[in-house]
Design a protein around this nucleic acid. Structure first.
Lengths: 156, 156
DNA sequence: GTAAATCCTACTGATTCGGTAGGAATTATG
DNA sequence: CATAATTCCTACCGAATCAGTAGGATTTAC
């Protein structure tokens, strides 16, 4: 029940790219410095993000990284999955097509809870985009993230 | 984003005790065998659960472990915290009285999301009791877990 | 051509994880 | 009382993961 620094760093770095979105590519070094992350370590995270098609890289002088899609199109869940692999609280939840992994299945009283928990986590991560995060960070009305998603409509 | 086997085993073992609740103490060996957990390892988990007052132990022959409270009074969150320590996705969320841990605080665009995620996880874990879990396991109407929790319990 | 940048692969030290080992202390039972 | 069953305690261990480092190859703007 703890975020890896991989996830923490990766998300922060992606926010950094999101804020620079529209301008030219941003150098790894710049992101690393601004976020206080080891350059070489971040390099590996970017490699993974790139492999998953979340960022685009431009080599050579004046090169750097840019988001591969608009900030509103990139969900935090995508970032986490790119960095950590599929979100699976336990092996029996890894791949739903192959349920056989959990031989205990039928008799495991805990299973439904893990499913519920995993769904909850996934839904939070997948309902937040980079756009939401930079919106929250800039303005003081950061409540678009903190509050629940679908509420506080003009009514009520 | 993965459950430790500590958590997995611990919850399963507690369910086992919950099912035996009302009868005499259950020996460690029995729980370990039924759940397919190393005896010596489970011993350590029980030590932690005992220290947190979730289970009661009776030494000597015919001894064993019993829940310290009714199954409906023990939340899964309590078990997880007993085994893993406080649920804190990252250090900056560890103790809310001392926010200073996260020097980045103001500028960290990710922080609000982690708060939301942690709250989501905690609320799921704390709204499910052992009672809910054994109810789900026995009957085929396991939906009391998957659905929301506090309702319809005319038991005990 | 050169400097700036990404790319790639391997290594490493520290920590955590899951588990083992061995025995001391307690207690029900015959 | 003797014994067996059981919890209790502390230390240790191998393997995996984590976070980070190292070093160089490749690409490209200027």
């Amino acid at each position: 029940m703890k975020l890896s620094s991989r996830t923490e760093y990766g998300v922060r770095a992606m926010v950094e790219l999101a804020e620079a979105h529209g301008g030219g590519p941003v150098a790894l070094r710049e992101v690393a410095e601004k976020q206080g992350i080891s350059e070489k370590y971040l390099e590996q995270l970017f490699a993974a993000l790139r492999k998953e098609g979340l960022i685009y890289s431009q080599r050579g002088a004046q090169g750097g990284y840019t988001l591969a899609k608009a900030p509103g199109e990139i969900r935090v869940g995508d970032i986490v999955r790119a960095l950590e692999g599929p979100i699976a609280l336990c092996d029996c939840l890894a791949n739903e097509e192959d349920d056989a992994v959990c031989e205990r299945m039928g008799e495991c009283a805990a299973h439904p809870l893990w499913v519920k928990l995993q769904d909850g986590i996934t839904s939070i991560l997948d309902s937040t985009t980079l756009q939401d995060m930079i919106a929250g960070a800039s303005g003081d009305s950061a409540n678009d993230i903190r509050g629940n998603s679908e509420e506080e409509s003009p009514n009520e």
